[in-house]
Design a protein around this nucleic acid. Structure first.
Lengths: 106, 106
DNA sequence: TTGATGTGCAACACAATCGTTGCACTAGAA
DNA sequence: TTCTAGTGCAACGATTGTGTTGCACATCAA
């Protein structure tokens, strides 16, 4: 599955914060709750929860309710889809810019 | 070439702005100057120039001086490198989280 | 029930970002 | 030289984002 071009900047904005990136990497090792993550980070639980909400809206993490606990889990397929889209776009750039360069030299 | 994990959030932050994303896509079709790009966008030349500077610092575009004109060009290889890094990370997630899931079920 | 734990929501302060306008400088054209 | 076109730098205002604290609510255990 590919990702709509319109939503790509939104996904990147979610990834473009140091704290969020650390939280994501952490969730890539094992699921955890906001409280657990906050205990491992130098910021408050509410701040962590806000970051997780951003990641969830971007489709990068999903939640799983366990009793009164909400566990967050990283979604690898979403990151893979992002990577695929990026690669496709990059190839398009190369092709067009090479054509222009060749035309300028020819 | 891969990109240092430390600089990944910085690159994504550069990509995570709608205006910058549009500028990048435009530069993916053909090189252009800040003035030219500003004429195609609803924002001032100075605003465009600032965005281009952010993209340049992130390594996503490069400059080429032509007389008194500075032309910007998208760097496809950098975007490809980002895509590769993302895919590698995503695969790592899948592997670890699958292991945990299997252990929980077993 | 009682107490402790995990969340969610709201209000606030602080910093960073994005866009603007204005001015000065430089390089090419007349 | 004189005029025009393209940049760069600085100051300002408005908006957004990140973090905080405080409080209320829900859930599990004793």
């Amino acid at each position: 599955m590919t990702i709509g071009t319109e939503s790509l900047p939104a996904a990147f904005a979610a990834l473009g914060d140091d704290t969020r990136w650390e939280l994501l990497q952490r969730l890539g090792t094992a699921p955890a709750s906001a409280t657990t993550l906050a205990a491992e980070q130098p910021i408050s639980r509410q701040a962590v929860a806000r970051h997780l909400e951003v990641l969830r809206e971007a489709g990068l993490v999903e939640t799983e309710v366990h009793g009164r606990e909400v566990r967050y889990r990283a979604i690898g397929s979403r990151l893979s889809a992002l990577a695929r889209d990026l690669d496709t776009i990059a190839q398009g750039w190369e092709r067009r810019l090479q054509t222009i360069k060749a035309a300028a030299e020819g």
